[in-house]
Design a binder for these strands. Structure first.
Lengths: 200, 200
DNA sequence: CCCCTGCTATGACCGCTGTCATAGTAGCGG
DNA sequence: CCGCTACTATGACAGCGGTCATAGCAGGGG
């Protein structure tokens, strides 16, 4: 359950993301990352000469790419794609995890933003890029479903914002209530955008 | 700009919330809190014999009460209260701050959740209670505007989730775009609930 | 003056963290 | 065997963290 990628470098980035999303950036130690990845401690300074900052940034970047790729996969798996269906899948991924393995982890990008937005410029930029990557994937998916171009990105932002916030509440409450609520409440609004009739 | 409350104890709780929402829980030191509050270091173990955990929990509780009280004040200040108007005010508070003092801080409850949800049970409970307090205030406000009772809390959850998530994106991007977007996109949905016609 | 209580003041301790320095090993081309 | 490169192995260091121990001070009742 701990190690998956092939190379030690890849494993360390993956492990960093795992630990960060559980304990936050500051509480995650370099030695801990190496141990979790079953990688030698000496490899840290070899693969990440930029130190912890570099490792964290790569973990955040990996998380952003992973989230975007997940969106693509959800889209491909939907029999007949609708915005609400996609959002339901995105939420479902989390309710499934929380139902089976518990409420240990949140989103690593959120953790990096909270911990480093003010202190570490490069990490804040990595978080921003990760959000942009993710938002872009969702917006493209919406466009492909018939959502007008100028409404795709705002709706993608709304989806990701709601998901991130509901994740926070779900972890605090140890209950998926907030997640299922936002999925249910937002569904009709998202599907209504396919017709092209939007607000304001 | 740093100190406001009267007693040293109150000031330390307030300062803790300020520093936590900027740097996260783990990166905020006790000595730093005392200095920020212009309070003597020796008072820490006097007022907070439970250590950092107690101080953090009280800061989170304070933030929850403050958020709820803010909602009440927004409600009272609105000429003719609507759900979208309330949400716009809640969002506006943040866009104003980010416009004037910069993107240094986020929500202390979010920070505490990210940093302590898995490691410190009492802090996770404090976060949960803070969210519940806040959600309750919003739900009561919605009810007072004519939103049906069974729809008030889900919508309140949606509002707070979207706000929290947009806060994360705004800090990462150093741009209030996500905040204004969720306010604009969610407004019509919220106002539509006043008529009583809801989804599903 | 004494004692007690609320609060403040400091210094020390220990554990942990990121980082560096140094040295070692494995493999390989020549 | 040499030399080179990629990677690993440790030990040390300096800094900072929360916490504890101890002592000081102010003030008020008796």
């Amino acid at each position: 359950m701990a190690v998956s990628g092939r190379g030690p470098r890849e494993r360390m980035v993956f492990s960093a993301a795992q630990l960060i999303r559980r304990d936050g950036v500051a509480s995650t130690g370099m030695r801990e990352v190496a141990a979790h990845a079953r990688a030698p401690r000496g490899s840290l300074q070899h693969y990440f000469p930029g130190g912890k900052e570099q490792l964290v940034n790569e973990a955040v970047g990996w998380a952003g790419r992973y989230a975007a790729e997940r969106v693509d996969r959800f889209l491909a798996a939907l029999p007949e794609p609708t915005p609400s269906g996609l959002f339901a899948q995105m939420v479902r991924q989390w309710t499934d995890e929380y139902g089976t393995t518990g409420f240990a982890g949140g989103c690593p990008v959120a953790a990096a933003t909270v911990d480093c937005a003010e202190s570490t410029a490069s990490t804040r930029e990595a978080s921003s890029a990760a959000f942009a990557h993710w938002t872009g994937a969702v917006a493209r998916a919406l466009s492909g479903m018939g959502v007008p171009g100028e409404r795709a990105e705002p709706l993608a932002t709304l989806m990701i914002s709601s998901l991130e916030g509901a994740l926070l509440m779900a972890r605090a409450e140890r209950d998926v209530r907030a997640l299922t609520t936002v999925a249910r409440e937002l569904g009709p609004l998202l599907d209504a955008a396919v017709t092209g009739a939007g607000p304001g």
